[in-house]
């Protein structure tokens, strides 16, 4: 078997194992489903009652932001699970097997993107209940969901890399929380980035999270002519930029995570 076929076959075996694990430990799936519901309801009603936007309802503006926030948070499950597994026995078995060196990471990220699919679907359904609507064509909407899932897959590799560098679940959790909140909040997720003060404005405008959110807004038709898009390239071409970000993240973090994984298991 060549290396690529081996990685695919072994990755699938590990993904099956992770899927079985989710079935046995439903609390994991429960978190991925219930947390997004809480987010949608909380933000739609708390912020939605306070903030008004020109030309569109805040709920419509908000939901793509919630999608992306949840994806960023859920992708951390990849890293967290890896740090936990690293401390458990099964990795001792993996070490000794003639399996592909990237199989564990491929399996884990694939099973996590499936969980992310479940949470995006949940959020979309709850969103429809609280007044979010898709105003674009079905093709565009489908592309929107695909773009979100591709980014979530790429971001899983980022969290895997961080996890393999930090190794313990406690440290990973701390770092992930400290980093992910600014990433999500210094964006256009909840407020119009054009109205942010001073140095925060360019940060939010160039933040890949903003790019992805803007891309989702365009593909779901959640935009308003009364709210001009800032004149920065990624926000002017958010779909292309989001896809580009995903590809770049994968190109950098797949090899990096694989190397760290190999080092982690050969101690």
């Amino acid at each position: 078997m060549n290396a690529l076929k081996l990685a695919a076959a072994d990755g699938l075996t590990i993904a099956r194992r992770d899927a079985l694990k989710i079935r046995r430990a439903p609390d994991l799936l429960g978190g991925v489903i219930t947390l997004p519901i809480v987010f949608v309801l909380l933000f739609a009603y708390v912020f939605g009652s306070m903030i008004s936007l020109p030309g569109m309802s805040y709920g419509e503006y908000l939901l793509p932001g919630i999608f992306v926030m949840t994806i960023v948070m859920s992708s951390q499950i990849t890293g967290y699970t890896l740090t936990q597994d690293l401390q458990k026995g099964i990795f001792d078995r993996f070490r000794t097997l003639p399996m592909s060196p990237s199989a564990v990471l491929i399996g884990q990220t694939v099973s996590d993107v499936i969980m992310n699919l479940a949470s995006v679907v949940t959020m979309a359904l709850v969103g429809l209940l609280v007044g979010w609507r898709i105003h674009s064509s079905p093709g565009e909407a489908a592309l929107g969901f695909l773009m979100l899932l591709l980014f979530s897959y790429a971001f899983s590799w980022v969290t895997a890399t961080v996890a393999l560098a930090l190794r313990t679940p406690e440290t990973f959790n701390n770092v992930a929380t400290i980093v992910s909140f600014p990433i999500v909040f210094l964006s256009n997720a909840f407020v119009d980035s054009a109205r942010l003060p001073g140095p925060l404005k360019p940060i939010a405008e160039w933040n890949p999270v903003s790019t992805l959110i803007q891309g989702a807004r365009e593909l779901f038709g959640n935009t308003s002519a009364a709210m001009p898009v800032p004149d920065v390239w990624p926000l002017r071409h958010p779909v292309a930029a989001s896809l580009l970000w995903s590809v770049v993240l994968l190109a950098v973090f797949v090899p990096l995570a694989t190397r760290l994984y190999q080092r982690a298991i050969s101690r």
Binding site: R16, R17, L20, G89, I90, T96, L97, P98
Partner: peptide, 28 residues
């Protein structure tokens, strides 16, 4: 080669049969 260590290298969430099947698959 086969190796068995000081700590049982098994997956807690899987059944005994699933554990061994997974290992078999990873031995191709």
């Amino acid at each position: 080669i086969g190796a068995s260590g000081q700590y049982a290298a098994v997956d807690d969430h899987l059944t005994g049969a699933e554990n061994l099947e997974m290992v078999g698959r990873l031995y191709h």
